[in-house]
Amino acid sequence: MKKLINYEAGDRIPGRQWVPSALQLRQYAEASGDFNPIHLDDNYARQLGLKGVIAHGMLTMAQLGVMLTEWIGQEGVITRFEVRFEGMVYEKEEITFSGVIREREGNTLICDLEAVNQDGDRVLSGGAQITVSQ
């Protein structure tokens, strides 16, 4: 596997796939204390005009975080991490996370990140800054 220190502008970050389940939304509600029924109760979500329950935004961001931590391992640290939530993530959807190095300044990697669903609709965009360990 390519070492973090060898990443340069234009290089792609190893991606990640994720399919949220109803069980996982329940587990995340319990771990986070966010019991908004929009994530847990299908009837409630449908009454609001949604197609069904949706993942917590922070659960989706956590999955993007897993992509970053699996990629950097012990070879660096995250110094900035930000996202904009752009679309609903429904239970059982196939979400693909990806990222690319926009810029390298010394030992700092600046990354552009995004997530799309199975229809190619972007559900999240964001960025991260990684400091490569010496």
Binding site: Q24, Y28, A31, M61
Partner: peptide
Amino acid sequence: ERVRRFTEAIGVPFDGTVPPTFIIT
């Protein structure tokens, strides 16, 4: 315990490190 519960919820093994978005919980 809190970190372990978080890692289980997001579906990754608990390895003693704190995931980047954990703190918000």
